[in-house]
Simulated scan of single mutants.
Amino acid sequence: MARSYEELLEEIEARVPHLEPGDLPGLEADGALIVDVRRPEEYTEGHILGAVNLPRDKLEAQIEEHLERPHQPVVVYCGGRGRSTLAGWALEEMGVNVRVLHGGLAAWKALQEKT
């Protein structure tokens, strides 16, 4: 029997490194590329300052254009979890030094409201 979408996400989440929203500033200081994998209209409505918009359907084809050096850390996020988890898996398969922002933009915004 085929796996459900939820089962697939859980399996990938167990394999792909994640990053907590509070750890993002440290990785940014190390020169990480922050990538928003949502659609352009979602990005326009709000995003993490400094993030590049590479929608999920263009990510693999365009990521290399944005990397400044080999093994540069890359953090991907979406609104919550689904697209960024799949994006992280795809980039990891390409050999990119990637982490998925746990909880996505929603978790990052919640943290900003607390601080």
Rank of each mutant, 00 (worst) to 15 (best):
K109F: 02
A2T: 13
L67F: 07
L8V: 15
S4M: 04
I34Q: 05
S84H: 02
L49G: 11
I34E: 05
A61E: 14
L49N: 11
G95R: 12
E10A: 15
H47G: 03
A14M: 06
A107F: 07
P21R: 06
N97Y: 02
V37F: 05
I34F: 04
A51T: 07
E6Y: 07
G22D: 09
H47D: 03
A87R: 06
R3N: 13
G88S: 02
P17M: 07
L86E: 01
V52L: 14
P17W: 10
G79N: 09
Y5I: 12
E41V: 08
S4L: 09
P55V: 01
A32W: 00
G88K: 00
G80W: 03
G80N: 07
P25C: 09
Y5K: 14
L105W: 08
A2G: 11
G79H: 09
C78R: 06
R15Q: 14
V52P: 02
A51N: 03
E42D: 11
E68A: 15
E41G: 04
H66G: 05
G31Y: 01
N53H: 09
N53Q: 12
L33K: 08
G79D: 06
V75G: 01
L33S: 03
S84C: 04
L27I: 11
Q62F: 08
Y77W: 09
R15V: 10
A61P: 00
W108H: 14
L24I: 07
S4Q: 05
L111A: 10
L59H: 06
W89H: 13
K58E: 15
Y77P: 04
P73S: 11
Q72T: 03
R81M: 08
K114S: 15
A14E: 11
R39H: 05
I48H: 07
V52N: 00
L19C: 04
M94L: 15
L19H: 04
R56W: 05
E113L: 10
I12D: 01
M94H: 08
R83W: 01
G22S: 09
G46K: 05
A2N: 13
A107R: 08
E41D: 12
R39N: 02
A2C: 10
E13T: 06
C78Y: 03
G104A: 05
C78Q: 01
G31L: 06
E10R: 15
G50R: 13
R56V: 14
I63F: 05
H102R: 14
Q72H: 04
L54C: 09
H47W: 04
G103A: 12
V52T: 14
E10M: 08
R39I: 00
L19I: 08
V98M: 07
K58C: 14
L91S: 00
G46I: 03
G95L: 10
V16P: 00
G88L: 02
R39M: 01
V76C: 02
E41R: 12
E28N: 08
L9C: 07
L105V: 03
Y43R: 01
Y43A: 02
I63C: 12
E113V: 11
V37P: 00
E41H: 13
H47Y: 13
M1S: 15
D36W: 06
P40S: 05
G31E: 02
R15D: 13
G103M: 12
M1T: 15
P73A: 09
Q112I: 08
G95K: 09
G104W: 00
E20Y: 12
V52K: 10
E10F: 00
K114W: 01
A14C: 02
E113G: 14
E113F: 00
